[in-house]
C-alpha cells in the first residue's frame, strides 16, 4: 500500500486587522522577559494586547496535561506529546489567537507553530538534518498547518543564544522544572533544529542576538514591532 504524495504547502497569512507576534528560542533564551517588555511597551502606547503561549498553562485541560508531562509528573512517549501540542495549538488558535486578531488586537505568543519542528526533531532523535526524516517531519508539520490553516505569525523573533548561556541562565533562575528539555545536549539539538528551520523559511524570522543585554534586545524588538505596526 504505497502512496505517492504530491502537493503544495502554503502558509496561511494573517488575514485580520490584528498583529500576531511570536517569540521563539531555546529555554533560557529570554522569550518571557522580552515578551513582557514589549507587552508593557505596546500597552503604554495604548494598544490592546493579548498574551498567550503554546502550550498554555491555564484555561486548557490539554495545556495543563502537557505541562505536567514536561515536569515529568507523568510519562508518555514523545510522539504522544507532539500530538498533544497540536491539539493544544488548535484550541489556542480557535479560542485565543483568531478571535483576538479579528478584533484588531496584538497577540504576543510565547512559542508558536515554529516550535514544532525543532522539538519534533529532538523527539525523534534526529541529528542529520538532511535525512529523509527531516523532510518528513517538515512535511507533516506543513501538512498539519495546511490542514488546520493555522495562521503563521506576522513576525517571529528568534532569540539566538549558546547552550552555555542557556544553562547558566536556567541555573540562575533556579527554574529547571521542565527537566525533560532542559539538559544541555538537548538544548544544543533544539538550537540546531531552529537553525535548520531558519534556513528553510528565511523570511519568517527576525533573528536576534540573545546574548546582548536585555535593554539592547528590547530596543531592537521595539523597533521591529514599530516597523510592523506602520506597515499594517
Amino acid at each position: 500500500m504505497r502512496y505517492h504524495i504530491e502537493f503544495d504547502i502554503s502558509l496561511r497569512k494573517n488575514p485580520y486587522k490584528g498583529l500576531y507576534i511570536a517569540f521563539e528560542g531555546v529555554d533560557g533564551s529570554g522569550k518571557t522577559t522580552q515578551l513582557e517588555i514589549i507587552e508593557k511597551f505596546l500597552k503604554t502606547k495604548g494598544k490592546s494586547v493579548v498574551v498567550t503561549s503554546e502550550p498554555r498553562k491555564e484555561n486548557s485541560a490539554v495545556g495543563r496535561l502537557i505541562h505536567e508531562i514536561l515536569q515529568s509528573k507523568i510519562k508518555v512517549p514523545p510522539q504522544s506529546l507532539q500530538y498533544l501540542y497540536t491539539a493544544e495549538r488548535i484550541i489556542n488558535h480557535k479560542d485565543v489567537v483568531e478571535p483576538s486578531l479579528k478584533k484588531g488586537k496584538i497577540v504576543l505568543s510565547h512559542r508558536s507553530l515554529w516550535s514544532n519542528v525543532p522539538y519534533g526533531l529532538l523527539d525523534r532523535g534526529i541529528t542529520n538534518y538532511d535525512s529523509p526524516d527531516t523532510k518528513l517531519i517538515n512535511v507533516t508539520q506543513g501538512l498539519m498547518s495546511l490542514y488546520h490553516q493555522f495562521i503563521v505569525p506576522d513576525m517571529t523573533f528568534y532569540l539566538r543564544i549558546s547552550a552555555d548561556t542557556a544553562i547558566k541562565r536556567l541555573t540562575l533562575m533556579d527554574k529547571v522544572k521542565e527537566v525533560m528539555y532542559e539538559k544541555k545536549e538537548k538544548i544544543q539539538r533544539v538550537a540546531r533544529g531552529y537553525e535548520w528551520q531558519l534556513k528553510q523559511f528565511p523570511n519568517q524570522f527576525v533573528v536576534i542576538d540573545g546574548e546582548k543585554s536585555e535593554q539592547k534586545i528590547a530596543t531592537e524588538i521595539e523597533n521591529k514591532v514599530e516597523e510592523l505596526l506602520r506597515r499594517k
Binding site: A61, Y83, T86, A87, I90, I91, H148
Partner: peptide
C-alpha cells in the same frame, strides 16, 4: 469537558502513541 473536534482527534492520536508502546 468540551474540546474542538479537530483538537480531539489529536488527543486520540496522542493516546494511540501511548497504546502503540
Amino acid at each position: 469537558l468540551a474540546l474542538a473536534p479537530v483538537a480531539f482527534q489529536y488527543l486520540f492520536a496522542a493516546d494511540r502513541a501511548v497504546h502503540q508502546v
